[in-house]
């Protein structure tokens, strides 16, 4: 066990090796490790986020479905109500129209009756005058007896 210059040589070599390791070996590998660690952490976080988003989307889809169902129900109920309403309205309109037409027909009938009565009255008056003429012939003056005839006509 004798010491010699190997001691110095070893020290220099050692210092050089440490320097080289510190400069060219440690940082790139540590960098790669750190980056990979970060990537893995990011990936896991992204996975979690994706899962969370999926849950949210499923919840939202269920909500939308429920909303759509409610809306459809409302629409159907409204349509039913509207249909009933339309039917009611149609019934009322039909009834009104029927009554109107009935009234018009009755008015028509009354008018026709009157007209027939008027013409009958005229004809009866004319027949009465003609009958009287035939009976009285000469004596009867149409002008003189017009007043009498008018009275007769009114009485008919």
């Amino acid at each position: 066990m004798n010491f010699n210059a190997t001691l110095i040589g070893q020290s220099i070599t050692f210092i050089f090796f440490v320097w080289f390791c510190m400069k060219f070996v440690w940082p790139p590998i540590m960098n790669a490790l750190e980056t990979r660690k970060k990537q893995i952490a990011d990936g896991l976080a992204a996975g979690d986020r994706g899962k969370h988003e999926l849950e949210l989307a499923a919840k939202k889809a269920a909500e939308n479905l429920r909303d759509a169902k409610t809306q459809a129900g409302e629409v159907i109920a409204q349509a039913d109500k509207r249909a009933v309403q339309i039917i009611e309205e149609a019934k009322i309109a039909a009834k009104e129209e029927g009554e109107r037409q009935l009234a018009a027909a009755q008015a028509n009938i009354a008018q026709e009756t009157n007209r027939a009565r008027e013409s009958l009255r005229d004809q009866v008056a004319a027949l009465a005058v003609a009958g009287a003429e035939k009976i009285l012939r000469r004596e009867v003056n149409a002008q003189t007896h017009a007043e009498l005839l008018g009275q007769l006509k009114a009485e008919l």
């Binding site: 066990m1 010491f3 010699n4 001691l7 110095i8 070893q10 020290s11 070599t13 050692f14």
Partner: peptide
């Protein structure tokens, strides 16, 4: 070699 270990 003690030179080596002592060098370090």
């Amino acid at each position: 070699d003690p030179n080596v270990t002592f060098g370090m």
